[in-house]
């Protein structure tokens, strides 16, 4: 006799029937097209409302949401450039310190090569 509860067996059987159909629906071209159309429509309507609102704010010489969004995008790009410069600077500093270490270790090796001089540990 199976240990599985009868309700669980019933759910599993129902899920085996329903799941493939739901997945097929969600992954269908029609569903994708419909959800994309809805998203585009929302964006278009939202964009229209934002544009109308922006005109009103601009009439009283105040920034609109679209202006703030543009500014944030520009600040974001600037932030990225500054970060990249910072990382490049880190890289150069690392290369310089490695070069310095190599120079020091070359000098040390040359001193160690002299007879009687202490050996460096590996």
């Amino acid at each position: 006799m199976s240990d599985t509860h009868p309700l669980r067996r019933a759910y599993d059987a129902a899920e085996r029937e329903v799941a493939p159909r739901v997945e097929a629906l969600l992954h269908s071209d029609e569903f994708t097209t419909t959800t994309t159309w809805i998203a585009k429509a929302r964006k278009r309507i939202g964009g229209g409302i934002a544009a109308g609102g922006a005109q009103i704010w601009h009439l009283v010489n105040l920034p609109a949401g679209t202006d703030i969004k543009r500014l944030r995008s520009q600040l974001g790009s600037l932030d990225r450039e500054v970060r990249k410069l910072g990382l490049q600077l880190e890289h150069l500093q690392h290369e310089q310190s490695e070069g310095g270490d190599n120079h020091a270790s070359t000098a040390e090796s040359e001193r160690s090569a002299r007879p009687g001089a202490p050996r460096d540990r590996p």
Partner: peptide
């Protein structure tokens, strides 16, 4: 299949 569909516009 969903993300790469031609119907999907990333900007949206």
């Amino acid at each position: 299949e969903v993300a790469g569909s031609d119907a999907v516009d990333l900007d949206t």
